[in-house]
Design a protein around this nucleic acid. Structure first.
Lengths: 255, 255
DNA sequence: CGGCCTTTTGAATGTCTTCAAAGTGCGTGG
DNA sequence: CCACGCACTTTGAAGACATTCAAAAGGCCG
């Protein structure tokens, strides 16, 4: 299982990922940042494949993913699987603004993960929003952005070709990881098997494999051992009709 | 444009649709029901095709659809369109629990529609939730259910065949309309062109047409002039892997 | 070295799309 | 009242796209 380290995954927890991410949405006070960093004190480790949230479970213990990747998915009785969303380091999950909500999907770890209890954050913004204006705003923005990514996913799967989909997916992951400093302008580490990616993109493994090869042949990406290098990010974005979700707009509107 | 009446659409606004719908999620007091019914006093009419919400617009005026159908969608630069969600009579739209949220998609009327201002409802549950416990709970449940439908949509489009998708779609619409008394056990009025349905299901019009014919040939549905009759609902549900979203579970958990 | 998981390849098949055109139903204008 | 126009549905045929099955190749660990 040492695969994961080789894939460019830094397995040491960084307490500041979420602060870094939320800072994109709103100005955070020192006390707010301290609160976020204090979450790192109560962490848990889970192995790859372990179930983090069961479908139907009461969402009463929000968590923060510190390290590794997880996903939300559903399977059909015959085994076909659709992955809805990848959960990346610095992401909240099982985090719902509505009280007493129920998990609509299962969540599993795709790599070994370290998660932290995020209830202090949830408490801060639900019980005492007034004294945590930045956190409150940023959490709202995060939830909105999650929705936006889900809609992107639907457009990809519903209306784009395998070639476009794959390009779009890579760009989106790069963008999301870049927000927490885990991806550069033109490279990302994606620690997923092609089977998992295929389940997210609504493709068969074989076809995804051929699509990736096509992207390589066309000098758009390099893909070796989980590291993706974007050779022509601009061109890739055109092919995929990739438009960065208007984070700034969301943030500005919330301001 | 008299198409719409012929399609089984009752164009007379029913003030009680939303009360009927929300009652499925939570017990509503007389005062709460009165509030819902009072929304019908401030209505607007829009023609088919008119834009109800612009993408990027600030979501500061939630509305209730009283009559007709609308949808949320996005188009790619080359014209391909993905419909995310159909908005049915008794549905809220532009309704977001987060303050100062921005519309992530456009919303247009697919038929002539009558909409009502739902801000009194929004105000009631945000400013004075304590004295409207039933409404508050029911609105939360509604938002959760919307999420569930979006996930269903993703599974359909990502992992089901055209045949399964179409069956699943019909069942879901029937179920949703049945909640407001606009569909029977085995029949629904669906006032959509095949092009619109195709855009929701991620199919070409031609293929959707053939898929519908296949469902007819197999004695699963009748489909004439917008009226769908389910000849073997049980069989259809098996084919589609249709499972009613656990509304009761959501409601019970929220209780 | 051997086993297991993942990636890659080939070939056949099936699903779905595209293009083009014909058919149908309905409202409008002659 | 009929004819026409328009939007929607249906049909056919060809081809592109994607899946399936089977097997080989590669990489990593024990």
């Amino acid at each position: 299982m040492e695969r994961w380290r080789a894939l460019g995954l830094d397995t040491s927890p960084h307490a500041d990922l979420i602060a870094q991410r939320l800072s994109h949405f709103s100005e955070l006070s020192g006390r707010e940042i301290a609160l976020l960093e204090s979450l790192a004190q109560r962490t848990d480790e889970s192995t790859a494949g372990s179930e983090l949230i069961r479908e139907g479970q009461l969402l009463d213990s929000p968590r923060l993913l510190m390290t590794g990747w997880a996903c939300r998915y559903r399977t059909l009785p015959d085994g076909r699987r659709q992955i809805f969303k990848f959960i990346l380091p610095g992401d909240l999950f099982g985090f719902c603004l509505r009280p007493k909500a129920v998990a609509l999907t299962a969540t599993i770890a795709l790599t070994p993960v370290v998660t932290a209890d995020a209830s202090p954050l949830a408490t801060a913004i639900t019980r005492d929003a007034a004294s945590h204006p930045g956190l409150t705003q940023a959490c709202y923005a995060t939830v909105g952005l999650d929705e936006a990514y889900l809609l992107n996913q639907l457009v990809r799967v519903g209306r784009q070709t395998a070639y476009e989909r794959t390009a779009h997916f890579i760009l989106e992951i790069r963008e999301r990881l870049a927000m927490v400093g885990l991806a550069g302008e033109a490279s990302v580490a994606i620690p997923l098997t092609q089977e998992i990616m295929a389940d997210a993109l609504g493709l068969s493994v074989v076809h995804l494999n051929r699509t990736l090869q096509q992207l390589r042949r066309n000098q758009l990406i390099e893909f070796k051992g989980g590291m993706v290098r974007l050779l022509q990010p601009q061109r890739l974005a055109e092919i995929a009709n990739f438009r960065a979700p208007h984070v700034t707009e969301i943030a500005r509107a919330a301001a």
